[in-house]
Design a protein around this nucleic acid. Structure first.
Length: 191
DNA sequence: TGCCCGATTAACT
DNA sequence: GTTAATCGGGCAA
């Protein structure tokens, strides 16, 4: 039986947690699936929201690990992060894509598409399909409506540069499940 | 107060 | 490949 992850899972470096999240199942009110793509952000990273210090928006990033940081992207979409490391390190993992496995009819309705590859393949799509909004900002990951299940078996994790950035574009802090059909974009083949 | 711009997406050509 | 949609944060004045 898969076991629940607790917030202690996140009490490590964001660079250790991020690849370990690939294959973990995320459910919100029972709806979701396997995480297949994430990106790491750290307070020393110019592309991170926490880079220039604590503000109202990013306050959750400066709190304890194992909590949810949600922000508005381009004034339109929501994006969800899991806070890592000891409190105050202001690092987090952005959830970029999920392989839908639970509550597919609900997600198809929320996303207004019947194409399962388009349900959760992108950070804004994940939040729309799982109905994650600002209302979830600051919530604990090991309490309802959130549920995390440890991955079962081994996974092959790919790395590459992050998507959509204008700063620190070359840092290889994007992680994905090898061979997944549900990535937001393909990873560059290994050289 | 005003201005610029973004960890995106979908609908164009 | 290109671009509009849409708005709060961050910074200059």
């Amino acid at each position: 039986m898969p076991r629940h992850l607790t917030r202690a899972f996140f009490k490590r470096s964001v660079h250790d947690v991020a690849p370990d999240l690939i294959g973990v199942v995320l459910l919100v009110n029972g709806v979701g699936g396997r995480i297949v793509e994430v990106e790491a952000y750290h307070h020393t990273d110019p592309a991170a929201h926490s880079y220039r210090g604590q503000t109202t928006r990013n306050a959750v990033m400066f709190g304890p690990p194992g909590f949810v940081y949600v922000y508005r992207s381009y004034g339109i979409h929501w994006c969800v992060n899991f806070v890592c490391e000891p409190a105050g390190s202001a690092s987090a993992v952005l959830i970029r894509a999920i392989e839908p496995t639970a509550g597919l009819p609900i997600m198809r309705r929320r996303r207004a598409t019947a194409d399962d590859r388009l349900l959760c393949s992108g950070p804004g799509r994940v939040c729309e399909a799982l109905r994650i909004t600002a209302a979830n900002n600051g919530m604990a990951l090991d309490a309802p409506p959130f549920e995390l299940f440890a991955r079962v078996g081994a996974v092959e994790v790919l790395t590459g540069p992050r998507i959509g950035l204008t700063k620190a574009v070359d840092l290889p802090w994007r992680y994905g499940l090898k061979g997944s059909r549900y990535l937001s974009k393909p990873f560059k083949p290994e050289a």
